[in-house]
Structures are given as structure tokens and as C-alpha cells.
Design a protein around this nucleic acid. Structure first.
Length: 583
RNA sequence: GGGGGCGUAGCUCAACUGGUCAGAGCUCUGGAUUGUCGAUCCAGCGGUUGCGGGUUCGAGCCCCGUCGCCCCCGCCA
């Protein structure tokens, strides 16, 4: 029982060799006196030929065969006649003339065809082990594996230690909701599953490990989205005696090398950088998709010139008008326009203004209100060319930007605009350190250990909302794939920050006691970043859902359709855990 | 917690406003076939229209409830 080759790896260089293969039957084409089996394994598929006395001898066995059965074949690699080669198959120049066949296990017909991508996800997740038989899945998980390996390799080469942190940890309030693991030994107490290794990696810096990384599973009990799973993988790292530049270059290099090695794709470094304020005003989002260069434009002053009442009133009451223009796009039909308008309304807009510019004239619902003065100004300010759609909304400025930021992606989709590049990486920096909560309180925007920018420290007592953080996100094609910061290592500054967000000594001790204690003992300056590894792979492979690159994902409601987790637990288990179910 | 989409044969889908609407392709089963390659040809099997109520002479279609899947908002520092 020894495999000599993978099916998918044989080619003309193996001609004449006797091979032993293990794999699955894809299809059987029986011509009675001659018969073909397409056989595949994880590396690809291959045609097996049965004829003459070998076919006569194996006939009984072959008649039992069904597609997707597991078999082994012994035979000889032969070249196909020129007119019998199959250029669609990597192994199409050769075939195996079989001398032996053994059936390892017969499969009944599958509940669905693994190669048919139209099959509903519900069925595919229920039989995920069959779904994963398809070549696209094999490719995705091969890339994922190689990428993890390559990232690990570059970090080890850069002097990082890979250190594990516990998953079952002490619950600390704030942040994402935790999954809880009730304790058997301590009635009423529970572990929390770690939502990230954040606090531990900072402890490692205080321990003097200097450079730490880990592929860490993270658990968050929050509602799911296409790019969120309740458990996911972060490439987490932290370094001492560094600043932002060190983090950027470590990550850029790690991604660049891995893309080159694993995907054969060249990524340009350094990645572009953009400040939070700029990214919000230009793209209306802190995770801009820079494969497209359309930017939002504030045309509020121009709209003063529009004679429509609702616009005059809006602008007079301090609302802003934000526009975006799409040259070389067709005029929208009623249906498309209504669809996109309702999206705008769903995002909180009152409506959507659309003007179409063609042959030096404007078409649209508000066209009749436009003065010549307005027209000539808008043409020059927006640099309008023929066949351009201009969309605008009017609202409070930050709301406007946010809504337009979302619509930007919708328009790009609607007009099927081709991206200018395959991968657009960018760093977003200069996030505000604090934000104002709904009830007017000052709260931390990121987490409480984020270091303020040195030049903004002076606002701490006077105008803390003006302080920018030494925080950075990495964005790829409009998806946030990493985030991190330089941390506070000075206990006095830490106390000041707590004070600003009105966390008293007692609360601080309660929530972060062991960590604040640790900070006292000669903490080095440090910072780090966590890469959403699943999202990175998803984006690199242009997948729309995290489920495509997680082997055994959960549904939007957090169920595993294969194993049916979560499942009912018994009275006995509950008793052991000192838990009573009410209701 | 909220908004939207979907659920019909093993799979993918169809069935105009409620009335020959239980249908197709693929899979599957049987047969034919010496160069096929998601083979082809012939024949056949296959249904609690997610589930439970209701309206109606009559429901896949309308109404109420419920379950499940997907997308989004809130949420996820």
C-alpha cells in the first residue's frame, strides 16, 4: 500500500513509469470493449484507461464502481495519441493504462454535486466534507496553509518568538461580548473565551520577549456578517522599542514576501497611507476601496445657487451636499435609480439627487432648477465630461459622508466598474483617540492602552476629542484586514487616560488590576498589530464570504450544520456546572 | 433587536391575476456502445410544494404563526 504519485502531478516526464495511485472516481465512461475512469485526488484528476485482457479481468470489479468511490489503481503512464489529447486538462497529454484496480470503499450517489457551485450553502455546509472535495476548495485551503507558513517563516526570520496565550481567560467587561465557559469547580464563576490575546501580548513585552507573534483563534459572541465568524484567526504580533514605521515595514514585508512566494504576485511597498480625516472626507469610510479613484466632493456652496426650495432650506439650515461623479456610465433607468435611492434612504438619507450630464446639458429631477451659473461652476469644479452620472445627497455633513461612502460601493457595483489594480493596500492613521458616546460621555475609540500622538498630548486637559491616536488600520480592497497601535507604557499617562474617560482607580483596578500592576515594573515602549488572517486570505482570493476560506464555518446564526452545534446539554451536565435553566 | 430576499423531486430551477400545474434539466436505475473526457443514444424511478393553522367550491400561489438559510442595519474598542 504505497502511493507513488498524486493523480494531478503526473505528466509526460513520467512516461513509461509504473505507478500506484489512490483517489476517488469522478466519472466512468464505459464503451464495453474499452473504458475510462476519471480519477482525482487533491492535486488534480487523471484519465485511467482499461482495455483488452486487463478490462476483461477487472470487469466484475468495475461493474460495482460508482462515482465518488475511493479506489486504488496500478498501471503504466502512457502518452495519448495526438488526436486523443485533452488540452483542457493539465494531465491531458497522458493517461494510465490500468493493470490493477482495487475498490477501497464504494460510495452511494452524493446528495449533491461538489463541483456545482450553484448548490445552496445550506446543503454544502451540512455535507461540508463532500463540499470540500471540489478543486476550488482544495486550492483555497492550500493557499491558506502556504500563506500561514510563509508569514510564520518571515516573522521567525525577523526574530519573533511564537508564543501561545490561553483561550480560557478572565472575563473583562467592555469590547465584544464573550463566550463563557462555566466553571465546575467554582460555582457561579466562568472563564471567558479570549476575544483576542491583546493584554497577554503586552505582558510579554513587559517580560522582555521583545518580539512576539502568534496565530491565535479569537472568539466573539456578536451577530455575524459575511466577513465575520464567531471564531476566527488573527496573526497577532507585538514588539518593543519600536514606532509605527517598524510595524508597517514588518507587515508590509511579511505580506509582500508571502504574496510573491505563495501566489506569485508582486505587491508594491510601502503601502499608501492616508489620515483618518482625509479618508473620511474623500471616501466616507475608514476602510476605503482604493482600487477605484472616485472621491466624494463637498459641493454645498454650489447648491446655494439651486433654486429649489427644499435645497435652499436645507443648505440654509447648515446641511451639506456631498456629491460623487461617475464618468462614462449610462443614464440609470427608473428601476435601478429607485433601487439605489431606497438604499440611500435605508442608510438614513432623505433621498438621492441624480443629474446626468450629456451633450453639455443636465438631465434629472432637479435639472429645471439649475441656473446657468450653477451649471458652469459644477462642470468646472467636478471636471465633468459627457455621459457622467452625478449623485448627491443633502444631510448633516458627517452623516452625508457616511451615506455616500456606502453608496460609492453600491455605484461601483451597479456600473460594474473594473478595478484599476487587483490589490489596493493602504494604512489608515490618525484616528481620534476618544469619541463622544450617545449620552455625551467621552469614551476610548480603540482601546484604553492606545498611545496618543505626542504632539496632541497638550489637548488632554483642554480638548481631548482633538487628540489623535497612534493607531493604524490596514485596509485591503475596502476590507479592514489589520489594526493595531502603539501602546501606553507609562503608568502616569495611563492614569490620565483613565481619568479622561472617567474610569476611577477602583474601576481600573477591578478591570485591569493585574495589567496596571505589570505596567509599573519597567514596562518598555511597545506596540503591535493583529492581522485578520481569514479576511486577508478571503480578499487575496477574491472571495465574498469568510465561510469560503474557513474549513468548518458556522451559519449566520452561529450553528454548525454538520455537527449541529450548539446542542442541548443534559441535566447532569447542568448540575455539575451549578447552572439552572429558567423559562 | 430591526429591515430585506429565499424555501417546489437527491441537486438547480419553472408553474401568467388562486382553476389539467406537480413540470424541466442534471443526478440516479436499466439497456445500447472499441477512444471517451462533466461522453452519447433509448427507456424508467423519483413530490408531505420547509412545518402548523386559516380564507376559499378550489391554495405551490392569498393571510397568520413557526423553523431554517442568505444579505444588511444595530452590534463587533
Amino acid at each position: 500500500m504505497k502511493r507513488t504519485h498524486y493523480c494531478g502531478q503526473l505528466n509526460k516526464s513520467n512516461l513509461g513509469q509504473n505507478v500506484t495511485l489512490f483517489g476517488w472516481v469522478k466519472s466512468i465512461r464505459d464503451h464495453k470493449k474499452i473504458l475510462f475512469i476519471d480519477m482525482y485526488d487533491r492535486e488534480g484528476s487523471l484519465q485511467i484507461l482499461f482495455k483488452d485482457s486487463a478490462l476483461d479481468n477487472l470487469r466484475n470489479e468495475i461493474n460495482k464502481l460508482t462515482p465518488e468511490s475511493c479506489i486504488s489503481i496500478k498501471g503504466k503512464v502512457i502518452e495519448r495519441d495526438t488526436d486523443k489529447k485533452n488540452s483542457k486538462l493539465p494531465t491531458g497529454e497522458i493517461e494510465i493504462e490500468a493493470s490493477e484496480l482495487s475498490i477501497i470503499s464504494i460510495s452511494p450517489s452524493l446528495p449533491f454535486d461538489p463541483d456545482n457551485s450553484k448548490t445552496s450553502e445550506e446543503i454544502r455546509l451540512k455535507y461540508r466534507y463532500l463540499d470540500l472535495r471540489n478543486p476550488a476548495a482544495k486550492y483555497a485551503f492550500k493557499i491558506r496553509s502556504l500563506f500561514a507558513h510563509s508569514m510564520r517563516e518571515t516573522l521567525i526570520k525577523d526574530g519573533f518568538f511564537e508564543i501561545e496565550t490561553p483561550y480560557m481567560i478572565k472575563y473583562t467587561p467592555g469590547g465584544a461580548r464573550n463566550f463563557l465557559v462555566p466553571s465546575r469547580n467554582y460555582p457561579g464563576k466562568a472563564y471567558a473565551l479570549a476575544e483576542s490575546p491583546q493584554i497577554f501580548k503586552q505582558l510579554f513585552m513587559i517580560s522582555g520577549f521583545d518580539k512576539y507573534f502568534q496565530f491565535a483563534r479569537c472568539f466573539r459572541d456578536e451577530d455575524l456578517r459575511a466577513e465575520r465568524q464567531p471564531e476566527f484567526t488573527q496573526l497577532d504580533l507585538e514588539m518593543s522599542f519600536i514606532d509605527e514605521e517598524n510595524i508597517f515595514s514588518i507587515i508590509e514585508n511579511c505580506i509582500k514576501e508571502s504574496c510573491q512566494k505563495v501566489l506569485g504576485k508582486t505587491i508594491n511597498t510601502p503601502f499608501s497611507r492616508i489620515e483618518f480625516e482625509e479618508v473620511m472626507s474623500k471616501y466616507g469610510s475608514d476602510k476605503p476601496d482604493l482600487r477605484y479613484d472616485f472621491i466624494l466632493q463637498d459641493i454645498t456652496p454650489l447648491f446655494n445657487l439651486v433654486e429649489a426650495d427644499f435645497i435652499k432650506k436645507g443648505v440654509a439650515s447648515g446641511q451639506a451636499v456631498i456629491a460623487i461623479a461617475f464618468p462614462n456610465t449610462p443614464q440609470l433607468n427608473r428601476k435601478s435609480f429607485d433601487a439605489i435611492t431606497s438604499k440611500a434612504i435605508n442608510c438614513g438619507s432623505k433621498g438621492l439627487i441624480n443629474l446626468y450630464y450629456k451633450d453639455s446639458t443636465f438631465v434629472g429631477a432637479i435639472a429645471k432648477f439649475l441656473s446657468e451659473n450653477f451649471k458652469s461652476k459644477v462642470v468646472s469644479e467636478l471636471n465633468l465630461k459627457d455621459n457622467t452620472n452625478i449623485f448627491a445627497i443633502m444631510a448633516e455633513k458627517s452623516k452625508c459622508l457616511e451615506i455616500m461612502g456606502r453608496l460609492r460601493a453600491e455605484f461601483i457595483d451597479l456600473f460594474a466598474i473594473q478595478p484599476s489594480t487587483e490589490y489596493a493596500f493602504c494604512w489608515v492613521t490618525g484616528f481620534p483617540l476618544f469619541a463622544k458616546s450617545d449620552d455625551g460621555e467621552i469614551i476610548a475609540n480603540h482601546h484604553l492602552f492606545t498611545h496618543p500622538r505626542i504632539e496632541d498630548l497638550k489637548y488632554m486637559d483642554t480638548d481631548p476629542l482633538k487628540i489623535r491616536a497612534r493607531q493604524y488600520d490596514l485596509v485591503l480592497n475596502g476590507v479592514e484586514i489589520a489594526g493595531g497601535s502603539i501602546r501606553v507604557h507609562n503608568p502616569e499617562l495611563q492614569t490620565k487616560i483613565f481619568k479622561t474617560v472617567r474610569i476611577g482607580d477602583e474601576e481600573a483596578r477591578d478591570r485591569f488590576g493585574f495589567f496596571l500592576e505589570a505596567l509599573k515594573y519597567g514596562a518598555p515602549p511597545h506596540g503591535g498589530i493583529a492581522v485578520g488572517f481569514d479576511r486577508l486570505i478571503m480578499e487575496l482570493l477574491h472571495q465574498k464570504s469568510l465561510r469560503d476560506i474557513i474549513a468548518l464555518p458556522k451559519t449566520q446564526n452561529g450553528q454548525c450544520l454538520l455537527t449541529e452545534a450548539p446542542s442541548q446539554i443534559t441535566e447532569k451536565q447542568l448540575r455539575e456546572l451549578h447552572i439552572k435553566i429558567t423559562e
